[in-house]
């Protein structure tokens, strides 16, 4: 489903040059639940962003669904992300100006859909993550766990084949974290969604199919 070939990412600032990823090659088959671990600053987020086409690698190629992505235009990339990928972030990244329901509808805004369809789909997924009674709230009125569930609802509302989650449980206590993990596992089992998750938690990682360890930008396992 996702194929990375010799990915290299160099960050250049005025003073230093950081090699954030060093020749990473990785194959994520369809339906796999993969976790990525490693010490802080080793390049996990960078790798995930590159997989999600949010950032371009300095070298190497990415294929998603057997399609090379190197030459896509801004508009095509946007469409690709919209159709194929759902993101979940550690700090939720909900839009505080919008209500929960409007936050969840967001990915559907960028494809052809009617307001009615959007509302229905969003309501459905909010039910799935157990938040049907919070649709009219604003994000600031929710707890961390609730926010992350809204974020999951937003990530899955467009039925993407891939979910990329960057420390989705990083800001939550273990009970909340387990709940989120349950949702992801079910999603993977029932819908066959391919999931790549960055985590610091060995226990979480153990619940996934495969674990990849990074160290200083290189894959060590």
């Amino acid at each position: 489903m996702i194929r990375l070939q010799n990915i290299e990412k160099v960050y250049r600032t005025e003073t230093v040059e950081t090699l954030a990823l060093n020749s990473i090659s990785l194959d994520v088959p369809k339906g796999e639940f993969l976790s990525i671990m490693g010490p802080s600053g080793c390049g996990k987020s960078t790798l995930l962003n590159i997989m999600g086409l949010l950032d371009a690698p300095s070298k190497g190629g990415i294929q998603i669904d057997a399609q090379a992505t190197g030459n896509l235009s801004d508009k095509q990339l946007a469409q690709f992300r919209n159709q194929k990928i759902g993101f979940i972030f550690q700090s939720y990244h909900l839009i505080n100006d919008l209500k929960v329901l409007d936050n969840v509808e967001l990915p559907l805004l960028y494809r052809s859909s009617t307001a009615k369809e959007r509302k229905q789909l969003a309501t459905e997924v909010l039910e799935k993550v157990g938040l049907s009674n919070r649709v009219k709230h604003f994000p600031t009125q929710l707890s961390g766990g609730q926010k992350q569930r809204v974020a999951i609802a937003r990530a899955i509302v467009g039925r993407p084949e891939i979910i990329l989650a960057d420390e989705p449980t990083g800001n939550l206590d273990s009970a909340m974290g387990n709940e989120i993990m349950e949702i992801l596992i079910n999603l993977n089992r029932q819908e066959g969604t391919t999931i790549v998750m960055v985590t610091h938690d060995e226990q979480m990682a153990r619940k996934t199919h495969r674990l990849v360890r990074l160290f200083d930008g290189s894959q060590v396992q």
Binding site: G52, L54, D74, K75, L77, A78, Q79, R81, N82, Q83, G86, F87, H93, L94, I95, D97, L106, P107, L109, Y110, R111, R154, G158
Partner: peptide, 15 residues
């Protein structure tokens, strides 16, 4: 952050 999110979920720069 909103801009980042919108782009991540499929908004093109033009949009």
């Amino acid at each position: 952050s909103e801009i980042g999110v919108r782009k991540a979920f499929g908004a093109s720069s033009k949009t």
